[in-house]
Design a protein around this nucleic acid. Sequence first.
RNA 1: GCCUCGGUAGCUCAGUUGGUAGAGCAAGGGACUGAAAAUCCCUGUGUCGGUGGUUCGAUUCCACUCUGAGGCA
Length: 300
Amino acid sequence: MDKVIAILGPTASGKSDAAMQLAEYLNTELISADSAQVYRGMDIGTAKPSIEEQKRVKHHMIDIVDVDESFTVADFQQQAFKTIDSLHNFNMSPIVAGGTGLYINALVYQLDFTQTQSDQDFRDKMDEEIATKGLLYLYEKLQKKDPKAAARIHPNDEKRIIRALEIVEHEGGGERSYDFLVPRADYDFRLFGFNYPRDILYDRINRRVDTMIEKGLIGEVTTLYEKYGDSPMALKAIGYKEIIDYLKSDIDKDEAIRLIKRNSRHFAKRQITWFKRDNRIVWLNPMEKNSLKNLISGIE
RNA sequence: GCCUCGGUAGCUCAGUUGGUAGAGCAAGGGACUGAAAAUCCCUGUGUCGGUGGUUCGAUUCCACUCUGAGGCA
């Protein structure tokens, strides 16, 4: 069966470096599984690989849409598999590397996104209903129309309530499958996780944010903000929304930097939680000398 | 040397007319199926500076002591 190597982990865990080295060793190409790196112009804040790095190893799923375009997991899933299949045709074992848990799961598990597309008009309508009638009203509506979905969603979880209603709206309340997390059997996935001890990871995150500021993050965000305003979802990403608040003079620069660091730490924690539950992942500590060797021996 | 005000959670501090304590920030845990770097849920982590005294009971009152800041000499 065709192999796919996946290297995942929280932000600043060293997974990208490891993936680069492995890709060069195996003479293959990388597929980024990162929901922010898909956007053109979001470079510094997403720690996107440099031009030089991209010359050394070909990266897919980077710079594929503009900031004001919509891009979803389903798009990712479809395009990533297309890339995986074409690399397999060249007898390469692709390396998926990234920290967006949902994107990883969209490859590694049988997640079926083909039924109901996202519907911005419907979502806008729902936002209005929340403003006028309150979120609870929508939740109760969902309880009537799809009790199973409602049972899985917390009454405060606005986005999931809206999405569930969206599905009901388009499929007329048809039964959805809730057999989640069924591993995909048609590819041979090898999963590796990178992580540091928590205090070291946080230290790396803090220092990386300082480096981003030095590299010109504020300039990057200013350009995007002037071009697109503050409404595109992509600009709600960590490192972007905080700088935008600073540009609007809502907070000062030090506060923006503090918040980027804190939000990145919180994000890393969520990523760790996400990956923890997949017991197929082989965890590697980048501080150990043999971690790359262990990685290589794990894919034979 | 004397006087004043402090010492309580990782940090900044509140509080208990005596019944072993709580806010903000920071932090920890969890969920996740077409916005996912999004969205949402749960959790207070503490010899209340130290030692003695009064008391049924002291973080709270008293004494001494250590320590920080300021003031007067």
